[in-house]
Amino acid sequence: MSGLTGLIDLLSWLALVAGSFCALSGGVGLLRFPDFFSRMHAAGVMDTLGAGLILFGLMLQSDHWLVLVKLLLILKLIWLTSPTSSHALAKAAIRGGARPLLGDDMPGRGKR
């Protein structure tokens, strides 16, 4: 039994660390990427994969099924709203005249 709980604990820690890494790299990408759309991609990674992994890690830690259900509902909400808001943001940016940087106009160093 203790082996199983140890395994679950390990899995949960792995998920938490991986999720934190995604969130961190998303934050770095948000600051460093060259244009609006790639920055939005970084934010999207942070929202869906980062938050998803962290929530999964927390689900493994939950000691009551009610906590599990609530975390699942939060996960579902994030998976619905975050891609939608990314989509709306991208559409608004296109309408506002922003165009993604393509290979030719990429500067050697990313400019802010």
Partner: peptide, 11 residues
């Protein structure tokens, strides 16, 4: 905004 309409109907 089709996607916004669908998702907000769900939400």
């Amino acid at each position: 905004q089709k996607i916004l309409r669908v998702v907000s109907k769900l939400l």
